[in-house]
């Protein structure tokens, strides 16, 4: 087990290293830089050269990269060029907002999507199945920002209420925090519920033809128990991979929802930093997304082993 984790970690580090080069080059391929952004239309060439030197933008790109990498390896993501604040602090606070939202969406949509998938899989071909299938098609094809806006407008028109636009952390007040995150969560969950239901339904239909299901039924086990005891347990392995994928997808796709609801999450941090060409923050934020993807994948792999004893070698 320990050797496995170590092997995976080593592979992850190589991935991370290669990805960091791509990220670094990509960020710098965007036209314009922080100095142009700071100066606006007012700039004069003399002052601009001073600032470029200050930020090290006059160095060749590979030197800039090695310099950055060296500091990252020592655990220092640097300082935001526009704010002067440590990147680690900026990214951490934004990441926690997005992480909380993503986890809420993941769990909430699993609670609804998985039972829904079991039911429609069990009674596939019926009217209920058709209804849910149509819902799924619509939900999967609707852009998240549209759902977010409709929810916001709908709630505002019906109840004359909209969530507070100044974020409150769960540490300060969990009720206020959840009040703020409720609509963003629902907006994102809509799609994920459909995704879960679709995924589970397919696996249930496939499982229904399997010998172990027929055997269980033959023993006179009620369908409900067959589904929960046998089918669901067999789905858990692919489901955990699926959840991992969904989680990363949510984390990467919350930008629009964050801007509609004014949440200070990672997506918004990234967009604002990119607009300001604040490279250390952009790099730090992207690196965080990468690392969380790797960590999630690792967790999924470990989960496999916990769920399926056959994988423990």
């Amino acid at each position: 087990m320990g050797a496995f984790v170590l092997r995976r970690l080593a592979a992850s580090l190589i991935t991370l290293f290669l990805a960091s080069i791509v990220v670094f080059a990509m960020v710098r391929a965007v036209p314009g830089d922080i100095v142009e952004q700071m100066m606006g239309q007012l700039g004069g060439s003399e002052g601009e050269a001073v600032l470029r030197r200050f930020f090290g933008l006059d160095e060749p790109i590979h030197i800039q990269y090695l310099d950055w990498l060296g500091r990252v390896l020592r655990g220092d993501l640097g300082v935001s060029w526009r704010l002067g604040a440590p990147v680690t602090a900026l990214v951490a606070s934004a990441f926690l907002v997005s992480l909380q939202l993503a986890l809420l969406v993941l769990v909430f949509s699993a609670f609804i999507g998985v039972p829904l998938g079991l039911m429609v899989g069990r009674w596939s071909g019926g009217a209920f199945d058709t209804a849910i299938q149509s819902f799924n098609v619509v939900a999967l094809a609707t852009p998240v920002f549209w759902i977010g806006l409709m929810l916001l407008f709908g709630v505002s028109e019906l109840l004359g209420w909209s969530p507070p636009t100044i974020y409150v952390s769960p540490v300060r007040s969990i009720t206020e925090n959840l009040t703020i995150l409720m609509l963003p969560m629902l907006s994102l969950a809509f799609l994920q519920i459909a995704a879960y239901a679709q995924f589970v339904r397919q696996h249930v239909i496939a499982a229904m033809g399997q010998d172990y299901v027929r055997a269980a039924r033959a023993r006179g086990m009620p369908m409900r128990r067959v589904l929960l005891r046998h089918v669901l347990r067999n789905i858990l392995v692919p489901l955990s991979t699926f959840m991992g994928l969904i989680f990363i997808q949510i984390l990467g796709g919350v930008v629009v929802i964050e801007s509609i609801f004014g949440l200070p999450g990672l997506g918004r941090l990234l967009v604002n930093a990119l607009n300001a060409r604040d490279f250390p923050v952009v790099q730090g934020a992207l690196l965080t997304v990468l690392i969380s993807a790797i960590v999630v994948n690792l967790i999924v792999d470990l989960l496999y082993r916990a769920i399926d004893p056959r994988l423990r070698t």
Binding site: G160, W161, G262
Partner: peptide
């Protein structure tokens, strides 16, 4: 004075209508 940054026009309109700003 609190200046609340809401980068989306639609989100801003709803916030204004409901007295959030």
């Amino acid at each position: 004075i609190v200046v609340n940054f809401i980068p989306n026009s639609a989100g801003m309109l709803v916030a204004v209508k409901n007295g959030r700003v």
